[in-house]
Nucleic acid binder design. Structure first.
Lengths: 234, 234
DNA sequence: ATTCTTGTTTGCGCTGCGGCAAGTTTCGCG
DNA sequence: CGCGAAACTTGCCGCAGCGCAAACAAGAAT
């Protein structure tokens, strides 16, 4: 498997600045695994035995509250780390991670983290950079939740997904994995009903095209106007 | 100033696991400064020249949105780091930090971060631990915003403040710095009007006592019931 | 003491959006 | 190919909480 993975991995930002031999040394310690659609990669509260690098697919990270609510924290795309609890001084995973489609990932035992971090400073620096940007994201999310209306939040969420995983088609830009109204609701703190109403309205206006577990953004620019609250109410 | 600072600093969790000589080495590189009430420690978008350790006082960290909203991200208490943008791969501060009262802090030039982190691994590990717990906090915040009603969020915010900075008095537990209805509103994503109404109602029920820029929690337990949504609506 | 500023209280009307409920479409599976 | 489950749509109602506006207190300043 060595050479196959090498070609996949070489360009990832997590490994930026690493010599080829170091990279081999690091990747050599990982095992690769595949996760079937809808199967968990790791689960909330569970002992954090490993951390992961997603190579292919999409993973949904969800937090469950005691009272039965589910909040989607983020979607992981190929090339991103996940389950890095240990780097943050935790011993358990803070959330559930569920494969949105069939996935391939690398996994390192968590106990390797200290030595990896010590021996490969640019690897740890890169890791903390992604932690930093996730902290940023979380704060942005808090701000959106505090100051924006539902339609703005949903528009923002769609644009974020499009930027992250958008795939050009004839009709527009398609979000490249199955996503339901419910999923979008859990990302934006609303209900599937409201999301459905919004998408219907936007479809009428030609902004998006959507179907069962599928959303295509036709006019990102006009959607951005809505996201920023600068749109004439119909 | 050496010995004075030593005694203040020795027990802080940021420096846990550090030898006394290492601690001196680190603290020796810092300058100490005082910030008057309502003065900024650092400002959003500004070049992150330094990172700070708050020794005394309380600092409010606020994000401003383009459209003029203000969202309070967190309050910093003595012993906590702030402005550690550099450790997260940023070169500018992500928010405004404003002294809620007269403050004392240590400041290190940001460019020292890489060497400090490399030479004192337990210092950097501790730092990342606090980053980790802030990421946690932010996610908790998102979840609260997504799933809870305003009264629950305000109750949670008060309890958090009480736990962080509470000071026993005869009447109950006082939040130990001036905090306005507006401030609480900015922490919970609501308006000062709603906060005022809630506090008035709670005061009638004997849960809290509040005045101008001052809140005392009289019955934390009953407040917790509200926070968890397990309270009979009056 | 008087005035000014800043924070707080409270009433009232309105609305965004959640809850409920009933119906429709799409897909997977036997 | 037809049945059932899962996803989606839509109408209607209700209300939490926001916006507006006006009055009121408590310090600060002079």
């Amino acid at each position: 498997m060595g050479s196959l993975d090498r070609s996949l991995i070489a360009g990832l930002s997590v490994f930026e600045g690493l010599a080829a031999t170091d990279l081999d040394r690091i990747v050599g310690q990982a095992r690769s695994l595949r996760i079937a659609k809808d199967q968990p990669v790791f689960e909330q509260e569970q002992e954090a035995h490993s951390f992961f690098l997603l190579l292919d697919g999409h993973v949904r990270v969800v937090k469950s509250t005691p009272d039965g609510h589910e909040v989607t924290v983020r979607y992981i795309s190929p090339g991103e780390l996940m389950g890095i609890a240990h780097a943050l001084g935790r011993t358990t995973y803070p959330a559930n991670a569920i494969a949105a489609v069939d996935c391939v990932a690398l996994a390192w035992p968590s106990h390797l983290w200290p030595t990896l971090a010590a021996n490969f400073p640019s690897f740890s620096a890169n890791t903390y950079k992604t932690v930093g940007s996730r902290l940023q994201d979380a704060h942005t999310r808090v701000i959106e939740m505090s100051t924006e209306q539902v339609d703005q939040r949903v528009a923002h969420a769609l644009l974020k997904l499009v930027k992250q995983t958008g795939k050009k088609t004839e009709e527009g830009i398609l979000i490249d994995f199955p996503i339901s109204r419910q999923d979008i609701a859990e990302m934006t703190g609303t209900t599937l009903h409201t999301v459905s109403r919004l998408l219907s309205a936007w479809e009428d206006q030609g902004l998006v095209k959507s179907g069962r577990q599928k959303v295509t953004v036709v006019e990102p620019h006009r959607l951005l106007l809505i996201a920023e609250g600068r749109a004439e109410k119909s």
